[in-house]
Design a protein around this nucleic acid. Structure first.
Lengths: 204, 204, 204, 204
DNA sequence: AATGAATGAGTTTTCATTCAT
DNA sequence: AATGAATGAAAACTCATTCAT
């Protein structure tokens, strides 16, 4: 469907954009790595901005899909409660969002560009703050509904749960190349937090 | 001590750098606002990078001083415990760090540049993760020492306390111009969190 | 093989470099004469230095080839000795080296740049002193071998023969545009010297 | 008479000009070594060109004086002929002209600038070709007059004598800093030539 | 689908010079 | 006698883009 070259341009652009920011990456930089001439880019994209736009578009599709999948899996998941419920949800959320190579790079890019572009700021806000909190809120409402956790302020609960994860992600997942070492640092911190979180919940 | 022009160059550079990132700001952009000619910049600074470097240098001085001040105020503070202890500390930490105009802009700048510059990454790490956690840890150790809060994992406590504040800062303090509205959103969320945090602590 | 524009850039650059020296010639100067925009130069050359380097490279190729040709022609030449032997050699050496437009300009350029660039100094040394003396020495050894001139210190002979030619070249061939008038001044002085040189030789 | 600073500016300017050529040396370069600020130069000189002009002016004075001295010493010298006559003349000429630090640097500068400035070209011509040949010619006429050497074409004799010296000067005295090693290479080559020259003269 | 050649507008930086102090 | 501050002009070079092929 999509030519090899176009895919390569997108991949390498994202690589570079997420490292240096949009305006610090030149078409030349991109082409040097794709191994084409500068003029060839314009066969595949109207201009530099169009590369950026397409990356964002793809991300929003991926993220939206994931959110839908996650939300749909909620009720089913919460019924078969043998295994700790949060495990599965977290696995999906972490592995296919924060630690997914594509999403991770987009997040860095959004983080950088949010300051110079208010449109991007909105997208960052949505996918890093609003949607995750909304989803987490839903989870806790569900858990309260079936009596697994006691009723309380689900919104603050969502913050208490998600803020550290966001914090760890920023700390461990947003530096240099995403190595297994970094992923493990993140996983350890995150799972340790989640475990403590649910333990304290049960006690209370 | 420092000429007016040089001060103005630094101020406006920080303004612009923190909005668009270092490489997206041109000397022309800066000079247009300082109202000098491009060549005049080079009387005050060796090159563009030197402006950036001086900003970081000043920040590290400011931040270091603040940390020292905070740490020195700890023991005294914790003795006169009529008024809620954390209030004073938070006031200092929030108002003169996260919400201070200079520091806030530097933080945005560090946030942007950390990806392209590993030296900056280290500085960001230090002042956004390591030092605040270390300080918070110290606070909790002190409080445990004098029996105000029960003994427990002070490091995780620091994360539970600080992560939401970092989270709120990113959400409310890192967009566009720092308005009173944003500051209030941040203050509300942060103080709400702190209150809940200490309340739950006492109960447990 | 080589585009017209690139060739033109090289030609005009050499013209200007040999008149004013490398650093006194701006890309603007070159482009004004090539009739292209400044940015276009950078399609053909990495930077200003690369123009200089390519000129030197080409010269060394030309000079090397000429030296090889001259040396190969030596034995053959010296057998058919009806016409004065040196005539042919000089013709080649003078006309296709000192008075050749390209070589002459390169020599001026080397002469100028030798002081600021030790690499250039070496090249100047090689092609203005070492190689010509080596060749002349070979000529005299050949002539001594077949008994045309009496045995003697062939190295000093080479200096006695070549130094005036170098002297005349500097005096007549290194000023302004290479005009026919200058070439004639040089030719007259040089051939007069050569004739006298060989006459004295025979006598002795 | 002349302030220290002005003298220092002239000295260092000559140093740099003779290494890189006039236009490749900036007022900044000069001031960095003189240890004054750029603006201070303009107290002593109208502009950059004026430094160059003053250097040339001083050289012409020095060179003229030397020539007069040399010419005046000719008759006296040639009478007291116990010691080889040429020795003394050469000593003066070589040591106080080619190998004199100031003159040597000026010569390099003239050599470089002759191509871009026809006024300089004339000065170079005069002091490197015309005057030395004229003087040498005079010497040989004197020697012929008193029968020390046989009558012959004194002009060609001057060339035969002077060309190798010019040649050696270019080869040994125009590279990098004037070291004793270089001076010795020059002296050896030059004196060897002179000796041979006069020996052959006597024989003939 | 790709590229060779070109370019206008812009980049950072350098430079000689001025002028008030 | 020297300098702090500024500047217009120009330097080398970059960049996104165009267009004919």
């Amino acid at each position: 469907m999509m030519g090899d070259t176009k895919k390569k341009i997108l991949e390498i652009s994202l690589d570079l954009f997420s490292q240096k920011g949009f305006s610090a990456v030149s078409i030349r930089d991109i082409c040097a790595q794709v191994m084409i001439k500068e003029s060839s880019v314009y066969y595949h994209f109207k201009n530099k901005q169009a590369i950026f736009d397409e990356l964002l578009y793809r991300f929003e599709q991926v993220a939206t899909e994931m959110m839908i999948r996650l939300e749909q899996s909620l009720p089913a998941q919460s019924c078969s409660m043998e295994k700790p419920f949060y495990q599965t949800v977290c696995d999906t959320f972490f592995e296919s969002y924060f630690m997914d190579d594509f999403c991770n790079k987009i997040m860095r890019l959004l983080l950088i560009e949010q300051f110079s572009n208010s449109e991007v700021k909105k997208i960052y806000d949505r996918w890093m703050f609003v949607e995750p909190l909304k989803f987490q809120n839903q989870v806790f409402c569900t858990l309260m509904g079936i009596g697994i956790i006691p009723n309380s302020d689900s919104e603050y609960l969502a913050v208490k749960y998600y803020a550290p994860i966001y914090f760890f992600a920023q700390r461990w997942l947003f530096c240099g190349e995403l190595s297994e070492e970094q992923k493990n640092s993140f996983r350890n911190a995150a799972y340790h937090h989640i475990e403590k979180f649910f333990t304290e919940m049960e006690v209370a």
